[in-house]
Design a protein around this nucleic acid. Sequence first.
DNA 1: TATTGTTATACTCTATAACTATA
DNA 2: TATAGTTATAGAGTATAACAATA
Lengths: 174, 174
Amino acid sequence: MPARAAKAEAKSEAKSAVSGKRKPKTEAQDIDASAHVGLDGLALHVGYAVRRFQLWIFQDFIKTLATVDITPTQYSVLTVISANPGLTQMAVAKRLGIERARLVHLLNALEQRTLVKRAASKVDRRSHALHLTASGEASLRQFKLLAAEHERHVIEKIGKDNRERLLEILAPFR
Amino acid sequence: MPARAAKAEAKSEAKSAVSGKRKPKTEAQDIDASAHVGLDGLALHVGYAVRRFQLWIFQDFIKTLATVDITPTQYSVLTVISANPGLTQMAVAKRLGIERARLVHLLNALEQRTLVKRAASKVDRRSHALHLTASGEASLRQFKLLAAEHERHVIEKIGKDNRERLLEILAPFR
DNA sequence: TATTGTTATACTCTATAACTATA
DNA sequence: TATAGTTATAGAGTATAACAATA
């Protein structure tokens, strides 16, 4: 019994004892998980569709890269460092929209796996110059193969043309 | 100083004392937050663009509905209950992809604000039939006006046609 | 036995603030 | 004074598991 509905009145309504397994089809139905549930205005909000799509796409990415234990965020950090060796932590954080405090923990994990190294900057002793290690570069090449496989899943799901349209429409947000 | 780089060697490199405010333009630069930082393969991943777009859109929604203190998730719950009165918690959770354990807390908050009420189901005494209160319906009408304003922000940002294309492409995920 | 709502725990992520060593 | 990296804390959100009432 729902604990918070403790004061719910105990009315008598032992009606039709027979029923066809699910959806007794008598009268006072409530709308359960097996019913068609309308979205109303929600269907006209881009944000709702985008959220659902993003959940699907991240789940597929995580599943596809599960063997190498790399999340979308970790992948983005490794890719950006590899493409821009010597990047500072602030630059990575700003570019990817990650809090600098959060990036510290992300880099700690990646450094422990010897994928990334923090080197002393030659121009500003407050900051670190980030590089992938040799094994980090090798690993990233493997991650990219798996990420490409994930991207093929996206094509299977929404179609090649729609994927390209999405990339165009959302380009300003990268 | 970065605490973890404590063993960084203290080399001498007090070279050009003069510099033009930022980017001393001497030699061994690292790539700071003011530089152009390439995304490499990341730019070809739909998931990355979608994540950035979703962050923007949720931030705008929250900002636009800040005066009524309603989040995108709360809005989706209210909308679905209003469009399907008598919905059970399981049905809402499944339809919106929310964990049923999380929905309990969401509904507690909405019930405390007297926007939603949990009624005793007439057909299954384990479950609740969810309804908006009268003031909940009135409030939702106001929230919808603000949500429409948010949607206009989306149009301003990506254009009317692109928004419609997005809704079409992402329709299967709703 | 299975399901609904609930509670609790752990883990991730976000948002802040404060501290240090530098600039 | 301001900034880069770090640490710590609090609040969402997610993922689980377990429990009571009910089916």
